[in-house]
Amino acid sequence: MSTPVTITTAIELSAKQLDSLAAQLTKKLGKIEVTAVVDPELIGGLKVRVGSREYDGSLQHKLNSVKQQLLAEW
């Protein structure tokens, strides 16, 4: 049974980058089925979604978190 994994990036990844990412994920998750999505809103970095868990390393997310922290302190 292969686990569906969605990788979202701001710009399209090259085949080499995608393969190396898929290899890392296979080590953790076993057989996976990768879907690559491009979303310029992320600005940079990437998001990996497995089932209902999402790893968010995008620049958009980091900038948002800085914004929240500034608003809280202000």
């Binding site: 209902s52 868990r53 999402e54 978190s65 800085v66 500034l70």
Partner: peptide, 20 residues
């Protein structure tokens, strides 16, 4: 002060449980 706050801000990637 703003620059200080930005420098102090903690930035990291997060893992969250999501749904659609």
């Amino acid at each position: 002060t703003l620059a200080d706050l930005v420098a102090k801000a903690e930035v990291s990637s997060t893992v969250s449980s999501v749904g659609e």
